[in-house]
Design a protein around this nucleic acid. Structure first.
Lengths: 344, 344
DNA sequence: AGAAAAATCTATAACGTTTTAGATTTTAGA
DNA sequence: TCTAAAATCTAAAACGTTATAGATTTTTCT
């Protein structure tokens, strides 16, 4: 303590500025490549050296410079989530984003968000990412059956995972909700409540999720001995009175219908409003992403879709695809369970 | 056409691989630094040269390599959005994220998402970003009055903007909802509907937004000649029957109350459910982020909070802070207007 | 026309990393 | 003990960019 300032007994204290491999190199007396190889656990570095270098690295808090790694390796260490305009309006998207990002904390990858607008060409952001190497992989949030983005990514052999299946699902990683099981569950539940004539609101365009839902619902309806009608979904972007009127009209056209199945929580609320204005007592069964509906109309029954689980799975799936490009793509389905069921 | 393959008349066709400054350098016969400086419009490059280089760059589709730029300049070209655990559950967070990212498309910055969990130290991600230079700036989503993250960022002079004000708001960029105006609007509206005894549900902890809300509501109540009571908010994470009971209890304790003001749409729905179970006819006025409530209970009145506007503002504010670190921080408030008002 | 000044361009270096090939040291084998 | 092989380390180069200082050319002035 007399030789003031000289006897700093920690190495860390001697370091100024952000530590790099050079810092460790100087501190250890070993060459920079040796340090680099030691930290990446290369076989031609002795255990003794590795230990020494790792200790120094830990002590001075060395973190590899991403720009350096990127420039050298050509990797970006970024995974990009493609966000369509409709994704933003879905209440569970934030949870999806958060859970992906949280899962990626265990990896060197960072999550970045690439949005596009309704007027934009959905291919543009994808092409930019692939061509300019803005990310090492992408996650597509809402896919269509014959999604051109999926076709493009497959052709370019660019790693990706999707939230939602496609026609090409056997060839790529995905996570999806098991909508067939949802349709089955909804019909059986409504039938058990004594409902006999169930209608299902499905979008006019041939969406895969709707196909699955109808499939499951139809089979269950046959099994339970109740009738199932598929009706055109209403435009949930329309004004509220228009939505109400549209729902009421469908109910008027189908006077025997005593239950409605909808694909989303918002649609369920719209359906409830429409049924009320038509003066009809119908049960409504919807798939919801957040549990906001539980406060609502007692006739609304829901199954919760777990966005956090989807996000965690997608993150793992896309990292797996990066680590093993030739391996079988990871694929997952959320099968609805009683635990997801909320009475309003 | 006879000299097959040789007479490609476009420069682009001669380029193989991703074009770099080197490519343009070879194509133009000029040195790499000249190309670089020409593209950044440096004063010591002739207009003729600039034009030539810009043309070649455009033709071959040159895009600067981010890793190269980053390594050289020390900038990351990344702006990080810090997402707390509660942010994920708010339905408008996705819109906020999307609108920030969309606004950033006009800039060289990319948006990445840094989440943290309830158990995590909220300071940790911030410190990591600052210390390891993982981003050039951050956006904080939900701030507290004396937010330690804000204090830290101010001390480190790290560029940032917040969604929500703090005690230090005069020193940083922010966007916030004008909760005082919301309180004012809600009270006046309820008073105009003939309500006389209004209660406001506010969180126990001293949140800035609640302070503002109460402030505005109190002044308006005095002005309109109605009474205003502030009640403890209920825990919206609790089970539905607990929430119902809690709301009902508050109404029982305040038998004259004929209207409730809540800070969020979810809280409004919870309040509606509670009021119903207490057998009370009260109007409910809530601030909501999405327009989901319009389908709901006719007694729920809402003002819409525009998350997209907040996101766009925050993106601009943070980029402004990056471009002019010494300039006055951009600050914005969303003042509620009749246009945001939705009758259920 | 010649020198000084201005305009325009280039060579070099550096950011931090990893890969390759080669150098050195140590160990094993005879 | 000497050589061959194995183990361990290092030198050099490269990824693509920009900053600095210096070189060259052109213009301006006397």
């Amino acid at each position: 303590m007399t030789d003031a300032g000289k006897n700093t007994n920690t190495i860390a204290a001697q370091v100024t500025g952000k530590p790099t491999l050079k810092t460790i190199s100087k501190l250890s007396g070993l060459a920079i490549p040796t340090v680099s190889r030691a930290l990446s656990d290369a076989p031609d570095i002795s255990e003794k050296t590795k230990k020494k270098i790792r200790e120094i690295a830990a002590e001075i808090g060395y973190v590899p410079n991403r720009a350096g790694v990127r420039l050298r390796t050509g990797k970006t260490l970024v995974i990009s989530l493609i966000l369509g305009p409709d994704s933003e309006l879905m209440p569970h998207t934030a949870q999806l984003i958060g859970s992906i990002a949280r899962a990626l904390r265990e990896t060197p990858y960072h999550l970045n968000v690439t949005p596009y607008l309704p007027d934009d060409d959905p291919m543009k952001p994808i092409r930019q990412i692939v061509e300019n190497r803005l990310a090492d992989a992408v996650i597509l949030n809402r896919t269509q059956a014959d999604d051109p983005r999926v076709a493009y990514l497959l052709e370019k052999q660019f790693p990706f995972a999707t939230h939602g299946r496609t026609n090409m699902s056997d060839r790529h990683a995905y996570f999806d909700y098991d909508n067939a099981a949802f349709g089955d569950f909804a019909v059986r539940h409504l039938a058990a409540r004594g409902r006999k004539r169930i209608a299902l609101l499905a979008p006019k365009q041939n969406q895969l999720y709707a196909t699955h839902m109808i499939e499951g619902a139809l089979a269950a309806a046959t099994d339970c001995g109740v009738s199932l009608t598929v009706l055109d979904d209403v435009d949930s972007d329309a004004r509220i009175d228009e939505i109400r009127a549209a729902i009421a009209l469908r109910l008027k056209d189908n006077p025997d219908v005593d239950a409605l199945i909808t694909a989303s929580g918002v649609a369920a609320m719209a359906a409830a409003a429409g049924a009320k204005s038509a003066g009809r007592e119908v049960d409504i069964f919807g798939k919801e992403a957040t549990s906001i509906l539980r406060f609502c109309n007692p006739n609304i029954l829901t199954l919760r879709e777990d966005a956090a689980r989807a996000g965690a799975f997608l993150a793992e799936a896309v990292v797996a695809a990066l680590n093993d490009p030739l391996g079988a793509p990871k694929q997952g389905l959320q099968v609805p369970s009683e635990a997801d069921f909320n009475l309003a």
